[in-house]
Design a protein around this nucleic acid. Structure first.
Lengths: 341, 341
DNA sequence: CTGTTAGCGCCTTCAT
DNA sequence: ATGAAGGCGCTAACAG
């Protein structure tokens, strides 16, 4: 079996406790014995058992990251931001995908609770919020990513979705579009609501009449879904001259839908996405989009969770107000919207 | 603190052991007491402590996945294949990125050893192999992904890299190209070697003279690296008329390099990638590439590791021969190579 | 079927 | 600076 501290202790002729102190670089220990113990440990090819350490100390060195789908480059970048940050502090991250399915999210939270992760980062679909309520009650450090929670006040890291969608819509309006379709996702998601609100605000400000037929919602954010929804928009008698997609993945589907109908972008149809995934600028017609700093957002969210963990997970320390970090969205103009740069 | 089996036992008036049996659906237990115990557990909002369970049973329900970079869609898809499969069996996966840096890989393995993961899936850079040797000695279930190991016989799941590159190169040759540049990665990586071998084989068979100036290698597979390497190829006095990129991410960089030089694809420069990431077909000029079944590969690798884990990690069971799964690569012809379909 | 006895490998007091 | 004792929450033999 594996080498344990006990084995090392026996060889070194000291107690297990001393070995523990040496290997964990605790102050109360003689430098010489420490060196000697470390030497023996390395000779024996000792690997600490963090399972045992976790159990004994009731502290774990892993954090959980729940996202819709790692295959979406936006979430992949965010995940890297989280992992790089966690790793620097000696934490590992467990990744769980939900595909925007509420059940999967509940399961994921349960799994992470069971593993006793030190903290959780959650991009929630918010079909329910009782699990979030529970986490709060149980004092599990939690930071919401990308989406706020209406009902419960928690820390979150998002970008200003309303503003982003507002900027995008306004840009299209400036280019002369009036019939602007919008492709959204599940309506309970706050980022969907917020982007929709931004769209509406821009339309209202411009005094453009809105039509319910120009608003479509899907169950997830995959390209295939985007294609279906775009087709739906394009079937209108008076078809929209521009489409704002909730995210670049959905926008990708819109390219396909346009091609099928023989519509060329941007001449027949202007298109704007959201996220600025790294591929957006390599598309057939480079995609105009709203950039949000995915990696940075993951990094910041992870830093906050790490802080919360260190401050005793709120268990001991005075609980400070939840942090709300909001990044500024940025309009990236490329060819798909038809603007000349 | 958290509810434990002890708490439940006290309330139910039974021993901790009985609670354990009930909650884990062991056979030797009365159906009624089981129901009663489960009832109490649910009322108390009990969440099992898998840390403690792992320590006691010396079995963990997490597996480790080490890959170069989750931001590469190929690896993202593979990761999903792994995670979906693991989840079905009640396993969680810890994801670690190496960026093809050997140190990072060693650290990752150490971390996973320390967490006592049930098994590891590894896409290695193979700058060293002692860590793999160690894992084998320690009977840690291990499956290599994407890349074989020359020195040590282990299970692996790959695609036929030589054949894939051979197909791609031959395709370019058929289209009339003779000056074919190739963009590779770190040379110790077997998939790099294999794809290079496939390229060479096709060139040799066609009797085309090879030039060292047409072969460039980078330190990783990121688009930026691809751009630099493509520029290098295009600086040759007799610049290549076609480029074969080790992967689609590198090919993406080549698009940028070509644009910078005012070369149009495929007229001035034919381009072929590898992987068929989901974005390849949406590129400015859709990318001809070699497809490998990323998700499936992750799935299969995960299934193998799960089997190995169940068969006692090789600790108890008769050790069977390592499995070598090789998927067939598939040529996907799009516009970037200049072929008419 | 159920309870008892022992740990798993480590950390955490408290002594010394 | 070091050791001894106790326990983290659970599983794993054994007894009954």
């Amino acid at each position: 079996m594996n080498v344990t501290m006990k084995d090392i202790a026996k060889i070194a002729g000291v107690s297990v406790n001393t070995v523990s102190r040496a290997l964990n670089d605790k102050p109360e220990i003689n430098e010489d014995t420490k060196r000697r113990i470390k030497q023996i440990a390395s000779e024996l090819n000792y690997t600490p058992n963090s399972i045992a350490a976790s159990l004994a100390s009731r502290k774990s060195k892993t954090i959980g990251l729940i996202i819709p789908d790692i295959c979406d480059p936006f979430f992949a970048q965010q995940a890297r931001g989280v992992e790089d940050t966690a790793e620097k502090e000696g934490y590992s991250v467990i990744l769980l995908n939900t595909d925007e399915i509420s059940e999967a999210e509940l399961d994921a939270v349960e799994t992470l609770r069971s593993i006793r992760v030190a903290g959780m980062l959650l991009t929630s679909v918010f079909s329910r919020t009782d699990h979030i309520e529970n986490l709060k009650k149980q004092k599990v450090p939690l930071v919401l990513l990308n989406r706020r929670c209406q009902e419960i006040d928690t820390d979150y890291v998002i970008n200003n979705n309303e503003k982003g969608a507002y900027k995008a819509t306004k840009h299209l309006i400036k280019l002369g579009h009036k019939r602007i379709g919008v492709i959204l996702g599940p309506q309970r998601i706050t980022s969907v609501q917020d982007r929709y609100a931004g769209y509406m605000k821009a339309m209202d400000e411009a005094g453009i009449e809105k039509s319910a037929e120009y608003v479509v919602c899907g169950e997830n954010f995959k390209p295939d879904t985007g294609e279906l929804l775009a087709e739906q928009l394009l079937q209108n008698n008076l078809r929209p001259t521009a489409i704002l997609a909730y995210c670049d993945s959905l926008a990708m589907g819109a390219y396909a839908a346009a091609r099928k109908r023989g519509l060329s972008i941007p001449e027949d149809l202007a298109l704007v996405g959201y996220d600025d995934i790294p591929y957006a600028k390599y598309f057939e017609i480079p995609l105009t989009t709203i950039a949000q700093p995915a990696y940075k957002m993951g990094e910041v969210a992870c830093k906050i969770i790490l802080e919360k963990i260190k401050s005793g997970g709120g268990r001991n320390r005075v609980k400070s107000e939840p942090q709300h970090i909001v990044f500024e969205p940025q309009l990236i103009i490329r060819r798909s919207c038809g603007a000349r740069s």
